[in-house]
Simulated assay, not measured.
Amino acid sequence: MMAVLFLVFVLVVVANAKSKLPKSDTNLLEFPLNLEYLEAEFFLYGSLGRGLDHIQPNLTGGGPPPIGARRANLTPLIRNIVAQFGYQEIGHIREIKSRIKGFKRPLLNLSAHSFATVMNQAFGRPLYPLFDPYINDINYLLSSYIIPYVGLTGYVGATPKLKNPLSRKLVAGLLAVESGQDAVFRSLLYERAMVRVIPYGITVAEFTDRISALRNKLGRGGIKDEGLVVTTNNIKNIGKMTGNILVGNRNSLAYGRTPKEILRIVYGSGKEQVPGGFYPRGANGTIARKYLKSKKD
């Protein structure tokens, strides 16, 4: 009997803790779950060949399994790094859902075709053969370049809008690890910047430049993204360095993006009301569904 009463007490405390957050904070905290689910599934499948349904099924909320995700052909070091990131994303989802109710995993399209579409958009022409993110280290790293940075700009953009100190503390912790992941991917790619991606004959650096340019175009929020190499006349590079291992504004502060900008990018449509890309049915949560609803109206 005492055990039952204690369990009820714990559940009440947790429920009260969640209910104390302002509604605006709750909406801003749940929105990043869309990106966290995307990263978790891509990293887990890419490194281990299985995702949340096998490793932490209680976190999916009964959402549909991702489309086309599979184990990548990675060397031991890259596989180990990606697996670590996958388990970090599990922790992120678990932590967010411990603070707010959240939502079920959205339908994610992690097929090779989905990533090939992004690359074709980035270059403004079809690459042949179609780009396959799962075929080797370089392709997988380039595909990973697409994901964490978008999420971290969302955390930067959300921070000043949060009202509760606990909300800001959570986002600060999430931002720190997401930034670290992005820095690792950029470092691994920077080491290979002048390597030409087979069979396209295009350097890794140019791939990153094109991907960043595409995200700036789709986001429609100005320059908030940069590849691994910049021109020497870039105003922030006082020392005339062309290397750009970390992204930042002229004072090397991180860029922030709004939910609208993020949806435009991850949908691949440039419009927050038009789903597609990695989210064929759209993202979940109050903010994302509001834009989808406005399209129907």
Rank of each mutant, 00 (worst) to 15 (best):
R192N: 10
L11N: 13
A176G: 02
E206S: 07
Y267T: 09
E206K: 14
L228E: 02
R215Q: 15
G51R: 11
V266N: 10
F115C: 12
K104T: 02
N216E: 03
K163M: 11
K217G: 00
N244L: 01
S114D: 05
L33E: 04
K240G: 00
G173Y: 10
F31L: 05
L246T: 13
L228P: 01
V229H: 05
Y140V: 02
L44F: 12
A122T: 09
G102M: 10
L162C: 13
T75L: 02
N244M: 03
T242S: 14
F278M: 12
L7S: 10
L228G: 05
G219Y: 01
F278A: 09
K97A: 04
G151C: 10
L29C: 02
A213H: 03
A17I: 01
R215V: 04
P148E: 12
Y134M: 11
F103T: 06
Y128C: 02
G276Y: 04
P64I: 01
M241A: 13
T286C: 03
D225E: 15
V8F: 07
I78H: 08
E39H: 10
T203H: 04
G219S: 15
R210F: 00
S144G: 12
I202E: 04
K23L: 04
A283H: 01
A122L: 09
A3V: 11
V197Q: 05
V14F: 11
R70M: 13
D182T: 15
L7K: 12
T60L: 10
K271N: 15
L48T: 03
A83H: 00
D132S: 06
M2E: 14
L170K: 09
E178N: 08
I93W: 04
Y128I: 14
L33R: 11
